[in-house]
């Protein structure tokens, strides 16, 4: 039976990536194929309905998959992750000359965030600021690629630009993009300051539904784990997908996002989409 995986086409390179994985996995005698979705919500629904066996999920898609599955008497497993998906952080950035010394100083300020459904630049950092007791925060959202759960970098970059332009008092982004924006000059060196950093959280995971054929699903996960960065055939695929190694999946790193989802009512307890102003 064909092991079928869903992925979200947040960028044209996604076709290159999963075509490459498909070719490699089939070369390892796994009957594997993939389907692409234009956004995560339909992918999650299809996973829980059993139309696909596995889904390369954003962390937000993972949260919804788990809730939707539980509500229907099913289970999904966080089977395998990239080494780059674990222990990420987001940062709250201000201009270097900002009077803010502490997040509490952001009371009444305007903070720029990414898309409404971005875990790393919207949901988690806003939840973090709420947890720190920051009140009367005005949020300016940059809704680029809604439905892609923040995979599209555009919203974060626009938030950073708004900060540099003086349109907002602070901006939120993932640590890796803060590094990137500094190196590419979106955030000119010396003009901004990291005000705060969130606790660590996990990012994407390969979710597998319990209706998937167990042997094939296990073989799929096993084969991913054998992909070696030393293998010249595999290395370009890993480079494109942004990892050095697949590592066992875990569920321990989704706490901050789960909290954020509940705080704003992004999904309800049974996985229904209840977020305001969210139309993927």
């Amino acid at each position: 039976m064909t092991t079928l995986m869903g992925g979200v086409a947040y960028d044209p390179k996604v076709v290159t990536i999963w075509d490459g994985f498909r070719r490699w996995l089939r070369g390892q005698a796994l009957d594997f194929d993939y389907v692409l979705y234009s956004h995560y919500e339909r992918q999650v629904e299809d996973l829980v309905a059993g139309h696909v066996h596995a889904a390369w999920n954003s962390p937000l898609a993972w949260v919804r998959s788990a809730r939707l599955a539980a509500a229907r008497g099913r289970r999904v497993e966080s089977a395998v992750m990239r080494d780059t998906d674990q222990d990420l952080t987001s940062v709250v950035v201000v201009r270097a000359d900002s009077p803010a010394r502490d997040v509490a100083d952001l009371a009444g300020a305007t903070v720029a965030v990414g898309a409404v459904d971005s875990p790393q630049s919207t949901l988690i950092p806003l939840s973090f600021l709420r947890g720190e007791g920051v009140r009367d925060l005005a949020v300016r959202r940059f809704d680029v690629g809604v439905g892609l759960h923040g995979d599209h970098i555009g919203g974060e970059r626009d938030a950073a630009r708004a900060l540099v332009a003086g349109e907002v008092d602070a901006a939120c982004m993932i640590d890796g993009n803060h590094l990137l924006f500094g190196q590419e000059g979106t955030l000119p060196a010396g003009t901004t300051r990291v005000l705060a950093q969130t606790p660590v959280y996990d990012h994407c995971t390969m979710a597998i539904v319990d209706t998937a054929p167990p042997e094939e699903a296990a073989e799929f996960v096993r084969l991913l784990g054998t992909m070696s960065y030393a293998d010249p055939e595999v290395r370009p695929l890993l480079d494109l997908e942004g990892l050095k190694q697949w590592v066992p999946g875990r569920m321990s790193g989704f706490g901050p996002l789960t909290r954020a989802v509940d705080e704003v009512g992004f999904y309800d307890a049974s996985g229904g989409v209840t977020a305001a102003e969210y139309a993927p």
């Binding site: 080494d83 780059t84 222990d87 990420l88 952080t89 940062v91 993932i174 640590d175 890796g176 803060h178 590094l179 500094g182 300051r193 990291v194 950093q197 960065y229 942004g242 050095k244 190694q245």
Partner: peptide, 15 residues
């Protein structure tokens, strides 16, 4: 001041 943030991201990307 951003060194800790950047080291973490850089090290993760490079394994």
């Amino acid at each position: 001041p951003a060194l800790g943030v950047h080291l973490r991201a850089w090290a993760r990307q490079r394994g």
